[in-house]
């Protein structure tokens, strides 16, 4: 009886904590994909990724944050827009396009990616992240993520 009562109270508190932790561990809020304008389609030139950024509002619990993403935009062989995150897949420093070597170089630990974003030298083992992009009229739009 004593064990039952004590166990019920302790178990109830434990369950409450678990449910609360679960409920508060799903931020930022998930929602259907939203796209935002990134640049004009005619701003993209062959062989020269465009360095740019986009911002969007993200809701984290009770707080709305303006998030900024640094990206490179270019066209693939079919003329579809490709948006690469500038965040190096090693430890997250921003990569920079080097026209002479046609690589994305990371200044932090010497990582190098080819023009497609695939790793070719240094510590990174996975390619630069590709963001979902689409053409809307004259504009390139990118998914807010």
């Amino acid at each position: 009886m004593a064990t039952l009562l004590g166990g019920a109270i302790a178990g109830g508190l434990g369950l409450l904590g678990a449910l609360f932790a679960k409920a508060t561990s799903r931020w930022p809020a998930r929602h259907a994909a939203r796209f935002t304008a990134l640049c004009r389609l005619d701003a993209l030139q062959d062989g020269a990724p465009l360095e740019t950024s986009f911002s969007f509002d993200r809701v984290e619990g009770w707080y709305r944050e303006r998030v900024k993403r640094l990206v490179y935009v270019m066209k693939d062989a079919q003329g579809a827009p490709v948006v690469l995150s500038r965040s190096c897949t090693h430890l997250g420093c921003p990569v920079r396009w080097k026209p002479k070597t046609t690589t994305f170089d990371c200044a932090c630990h010497g990582g190098k990616f080819d023009a497609e974003g695939a790793p070719i030298a240094g510590p990174p083992k996975s390619p630069l992240r590709r963001l979902n992009a689409r053409i809307a009229g004259e504009m390139v739009e990118v998914e807010e993520t």
Partner: peptide, 29 residues
């Protein structure tokens, strides 16, 4: 302790963090 995970003791966020706890902290069982 659970409330402190979500509560912000600042006038610009305190009320909204409390309303957030009331309205948005939900779980399924």
């Amino acid at each position: 302790m659970l409330l402190a995970l979500c509560y912000v003791p600042s006038p610009d966020h305190a009320y909204n963090s409390v309303r957030f706890i009331d309205h948005e902290v939900k779980s399924t069982l």
